[in-house]
Simulated scan of single mutants.
Amino acid sequence: MSKVKYYYDAESLSYKKIRRKKRNTVKYASVFLLGSALFGFLFVFIASQYIESPKERALKRELQNAQLQFELLNKKMKEAETVLANIAERDNNIYRVYFEANPIPEEQRKAGFGGINRYKEFEGFDNSKLIKESNKRLDILQKQLVVQSKSLDEIAKLAEDKEKLLAAIPAIQPVSNKDLTRMASGFGFRSDPFTKVRKMHWGMDFTSPRGTPIYASGDGIVERADNLASGYGNHIRINHGYGYVSLYAHLFKYNVRKNQKVKRGDLIGFVGSTGRSEAPHLHYEIIKDGEKINPINFYYGSLSTEEFNKLLEHASLENQSFD
């Protein structure tokens, strides 16, 4: 209930009740309402500037989390780019050099994406440029990973082939040194034991007692094990693949059969003196791509430096061959 107010009337020498005019009441009410509205608007404006609503706080937390995740993503991309660059460098300068493969050009490794605008969907945002650059960087990184992955697959295949090649090359002496009497004759022009005419000797002769074990000098498949070739008597031919064939002649007997797979060091036969032979010995040849080559260059797998030098010295003498 509002207070009743009075005023002193000098004429009547009495107090009279103050009566508010209706027009003034409306005026005061309007001023009050307008002031209240202005105060409310001012309060809302100030509150909107300095006081966060629960929804705004939630959105702010989401934005801060997104910024953190974005920074972490960029950090991870930078680390991935560093690791990938290191792998690419080793790939070009070590792996591909070792396996004699051409390096992958830098423009192929770091090629971008041409054509249409792939990142149009990211336009129109406050950070559009940053978002587009990050997505472009991620796409290029993924493409580089695909290129490098294919390259490593190729290197793995080359390594597998290289391992097979190294196992296939005739790389050991076919007669053990402990069983060897001497290296009688080497590759080159030698005196024929029967005609005494100087002619080309296409292999190496290892003199050993009859029955001395003969070993496969590399992995391969027995191509022949017969005595149908003129002059060789009982002989074995092993196809090693990659253009290599090894021949073992004048055998006493075989320990393998045609089409049999053999590994380097497997026992394949025994020294004899069959065919055109003057005494028990092994005549050993290596054929590469259809051409007979000097076997002296293929003993890195079984001889020491001293043994090899001694073998090289005897092989270079122009003496008489045994077949």
Score class of each variant (00 low, 15 high):
E313L: 14
V83R: 13
N255M: 02
Y95I: 04
R137V: 02
A66W: 09
G124F: 02
F187T: 04
L59Y: 10
I268H: 03
K3A: 13
L138S: 12
Y28P: 07
K76L: 11
S316D: 14
L84E: 08
S185R: 05
T305V: 15
L158G: 05
H314Q: 15
E56S: 12
P103Y: 06
E160V: 07
L141M: 09
Y300S: 15
F32T: 12
R96L: 05
L152A: 01
A101G: 12
Q144I: 11
A10P: 00
Q144P: 04
D179T: 08
D153L: 09
N93G: 13
L84R: 04
A229I: 12
W202D: 11
A66K: 15
S185I: 05
R57A: 15
N259S: 14
F99T: 06
I104W: 02
S302F: 14
S246E: 03
R57F: 12
Y299I: 07
Y254L: 08
L312T: 01
I268M: 04
R182P: 01
I172V: 14
G203S: 05
G211A: 00
V146W: 09
P54G: 00
K150F: 14
F252V: 00
N227P: 07
A29E: 11
S176R: 15
K261F: 05
L282H: 07
S185C: 08
I140L: 05
G124S: 06
F113M: 08
F122V: 11
D226T: 07
E163P: 01
F113E: 10
A29N: 13
Y232W: 12
Q108K: 13
Y7C: 07
L38R: 04
E79I: 10
Y119W: 10
E81R: 01
L138H: 07
K199H: 10
R276P: 03
E163Q: 12
L267V: 01
T181W: 01
G243K: 03
G241C: 04
E133Y: 00
S191L: 14
S273G: 09
L13Y: 08
D126M: 00
G112C: 08
S30K: 13
H201S: 01
L311R: 04
A111M: 12
T274M: 04
F308H: 09
K3N: 14
K162V: 04
D161Y: 06
A80K: 10
Y98D: 13
N117Y: 00
I236C: 03
I87H: 13
K60P: 01
W202S: 09
V245D: 02
G265A: 06
F189E: 12
H240D: 06
F252L: 14
K136P: 02
V147I: 15
S149W: 01
T25Y: 09
Y215S: 00
S321M: 15
R23V: 15
F308M: 14
R118N: 11
N92F: 01
I221S: 05
D192L: 08
F252N: 12
E56M: 11
N24I: 12
K16L: 05
A66M: 09
N74F: 04
K3R: 15
